[in-house]
Design a binder for these strands. Sequence first.
RNA 1: GGUCGCGUAGCUCAGUUGGCAGAGCACCUGACUUUUAAUCAGGCGGUCUUGGGUUCGAGUCCCAACGCGAUCACCA
Length: 512
Amino acid sequence: MTEQQVQQQEESQLVAARRAKMQRWMDDYNVYPWGNRVDGLTSLADARSQFSQEAHDASKEEGGVDDRPRVKVAGRCIQHRAMGKLTFLVIRDETGDLQISCSKSALSTEAFKVASKLDYGDIVVAEGPIGATQKGEICVWADDFTLACKSLVPPPEKFHGISDAELRYRQRYVDMYTNPETIETFKNRSIIIRAIRSYMETGGFVEVETPMMQPLAGGAAARPFSTHHNALDIPLFLRIAPELYLKRLLVGGMRKVYEINRNFRNEGISKKHNPEFTMLEAYEAFGDCETMLELTEGMVRAGAAAVSESMCISFGEIEVDYNKPFDRVSYGDLFEKALGFSMDDEASVRAKGSELHIDGSDNLNHWLLVSAIFDACVEDTIDPTRPTFVTDYPSAISPLTRPHAECDALSHRWELFICGMEIANSYTELNDPDLQLQRFTEQLDGADDEIQAFRTLDDDFIHALRVGMPPAGGLGVGIDRVVMLLTGNESIRDVVLFPLMKPQDSTHEETD
RNA sequence: GGUCGCGUAGCUCAGUUGGCAGAGCACCUGACUUUUAAUCAGGCGGUCUUGGGUUCGAGUCCCAACGCGAUCACCA
């Protein structure tokens, strides 16, 4: 927000009213509007569960003993109904909502005044027996009530929460308290990632952290973000993948390693792409892409089990049953089934390329053309309700992958698709240093000037391979996309707390 | 980056053929001891995203910019 906008907001009438009210409370009732430490708080869900009908009934009898459980709770005011000598308000915390009933006769004059004039958004602490109203609403009958934090900004519409997607992403904190399902999603994200970590640890994988700022951005083909280190006066790139560093760890002698962390790719933004995204990469020495396939199926299932008892989870119109074994189909079979001719049939592939008006279809390498056709019209033929491993990718589009011994056009690589999204990518790693050097060199030769500017041969990685990397399986999993699937959110922006947004106050210098 | 759609009060939205800027909620004042999006009475609130243009007159029509969304491209 610009200073001007902040100023406008602070000058608005609604804010001014809240400031005035706060000042009155400070002057007249000696209220400190910013609160202090509070011990012994009970969550709202906990407090609600402590309600006892017997104790409630007994407390209403003439001369009955009041042994209703006492609770101390805190939350943000989301509803407020003042009725003269009685005020009802509903507060919210991350576990749910609970009504607080404030009777003038049970509270100090000051506390009752504050309660009856409370604003939506104020954070309060209330203490008292947990009981119910005449209509049966479970509530805390407050005998102590204090302001914990004055909210100076009025909340959006009180009943429906905010629906404007832009506002939800820009002011996530407002989205979170007005739309409880937002917190639910991010708690589930945490649960899923914890389940995945636990699954990896159980499998003997060691979590490591490798550089996010790299002198050479390798391990994938994306465009990197670039930055600069002042003291060393060198350019640095935000990593596009941790791959080349994780493999060095296998060279060093670690058997099973994984990393869950952010990658940064300077590419387009879409429902499935945020410029920074969370990726799990795992490498297992003496494994191959088959071991990684089994690992991945178990991992996705562990995540699903952590957030869903039935493990049947809807994603838009699609329902996926994660109990069932995942499908697998080879790249070539899928291609032939979708198009009616083999991907080895160069003439038909060439013809199809022209038909689809694929860029450079006349002189593109056969396998690159196959890949373009595959992306254009074969991927969509995968049943979205069935998690599907597509295996045996062409080597030409898999420069870090070991080719098949019997047919070096194909490689030991698979990708996992669920609901039309690419979720994971895995290969039997190439550990022949000479072949790897050749692949890198070919890749660089094919690159245009712009790509050459940031893609440089990683000599040290080749050196590491010469030292010797054991045969290994490698895996990358798009964690955000897994969370999308397992929480039923169709946009990556709904599973990333603070998705990248264009600044609203962009002052653009016109350079003519 | 291309195409299409949207942008009106704090929020959600209406605004007719181009003719005084509207509603509900929120907010302010008052009443009310069992409310459930409480109710009742009264009141406040606008750079119609921004900048140009057409017109006697523009929220409305035209052009451009900005932001958001959808979609395509890009992303092995």
